[in-house]
Write a protein that binds this DNA or RNA. Structure first.
Ligand SMILES: [Mn+2]
Ligand SMILES: [Mn+2]
Ligand SMILES: [Zn+2]
Ligand SMILES: [Zn+2]
Lengths: 145, 145
DNA sequence: ATTTAATTGCAACATAGTTGCATTTAATCA
DNA sequence: TGATTAAATGCAACTATGTTGCAATTAAAT
C-alpha cells in the first residue's frame, strides 16, 4: 500500500540526497515515513518536544521539499503541512501532487488520498492553471462512527 | 452576470439583516459588491487605510459570514478571504460553496469561479466529506499574456 | 586530528488572527 | 427632540505561524 523509494531507510535517503545524517533530520524523515500523514511544524515541535528548535524544523521541511522527497500543502486551516511524495514523478522543484487532501475534523489528521485524482477542470477562457490543491474536510476512516 | 439579491444596495441589505448601517460596514459590503473578488482583512485594511481598526474588519467579516451573505475560504497562501455568496442556497450557518477558487500568481487576486463546479469525488470507504475547498493557482484572465 | 561547509540555535522580526474591556454610537423610544 | 440601550468600535494585549541574520556547533571529508 505505501511505498517510498521501496521504503528505504531514512539514513540511506539522506545519504543519497547529500544531506548530513543528523539526529533531527533522521527523526523527522523517519516520522514522516511511519505516520504517512501530512504533518505540520507545530506538530513536529510537540512530537520532538524541545529536541529541535522551531526554526530548524521549518528549515528541515523546506530542505526536504526542495529535494522533492516531500511536498507542501496548505491545509483547511491555512497551516503548512508536508507529506512524503509516494510517486516517482516528484523531482526537485517539480512536484506532481494532484490528489485530494483529506482533513479530519475529528482527529485533526490530514492525509493524502493519492488514489483520488482530481478530475480535469474546464476553466473559463483566458484562465491558465499551474497548481491545484483540493482540501476536503470530513470524518476519516479511523474516526468514523 | 453578477447578481446578489438582485444587487441590492448595501444599506438595504444591512437593514434586512438587522445590522446597523455604520459607515465601515457599508463600505465593506459595498466594496465586496463592486470588486466581486474574495478579499482578505489585510487587503481591506489597506483599502480603507486606517479608517477602521483591524479588529473591526475581522469582526465585520465574521458577522457577515454568520449571516450567510459572504463565505469564507482559505486561499492558496493560507490567508482567510471572504466573497459574496451569489446564489440563494447560502443561508445562515449553511453555505454551499462548492466551486473553484482561482488564485492569480500575477496580480494576487482570488476569485470565485462559480461556473466551475467541483465534480463529485469517490472517496475511499469510510471517509465522509462535509466541506470542500479547491484552490487553483495560475494566471487570471486579466493578467494573461 | 584538522578542516570546512552544512546544520543548528537563538534572537528578533513579520503577519494573521483572537479576546477582553472600556468607549462610542445607531436606532429606538419617551 | 432628547434620553436610553444594545450594537458596534477601538485599543491593548495576546497567540500562532512563519522568516531572517548571525554566531556556534558538528558531520564528514582530508
Ligand atoms: Mn499530498
Ligand atoms: Mn467562493
Ligand atoms: Zn480522524
Ligand atoms: Zn491576475
Amino acid at each position: 500500500m505505501f511505498n517510498f523509494n521501496e521504503m528505504k531507510k531514512a539514513a540511506q535517503i539522506l545519504d543519497e540526497l547529500g544531506f548530513r545524517k543528523t539526529e533531527i533530520r533522521l527523526k523527522v524523515l523517519d516520522h514522516l515515513q511511519k505516520v504517512n500523514k501530512a504533518v505540520s511544524q507545530p506538530e513536529l515541535e510537540i512530537k520532538f518536544n524541545k529536541f529541535a528548535d522551531r526554526v530548524t524544523l521549518y528549515r528541515i521541511l523546506s530542505a526536504f521539499e526542495a529535494k522533492g522527497i516531500i511536498h507542501k500543502i496548505m491545509d483547511a486551516h491555512g497551516v503548512a503541512r508536508y507529506a512524503l511524495c509516494n510517486h516517482k514523478h516528484c523531482m526537485e522543484h517539480q512536484h506532481h501532487d494532484e490528489h485530494v487532501h483529506f482533513n479530519c475534523t475529528e482527529c485533526g489528521d490530514v492525509v493524502c488520498l493519492d488514489t483520488v485524482k482530481i478530475p480535469a477542470l474546464k476553466l473559463p477562457k483566458a484562465f491558465s492553471s499551474a497548481k491545484i490543491n483540493l482540501n476536503i474536510e470530513g470524518i476519516c476512516n479511523h474516526c468514523q462512527k
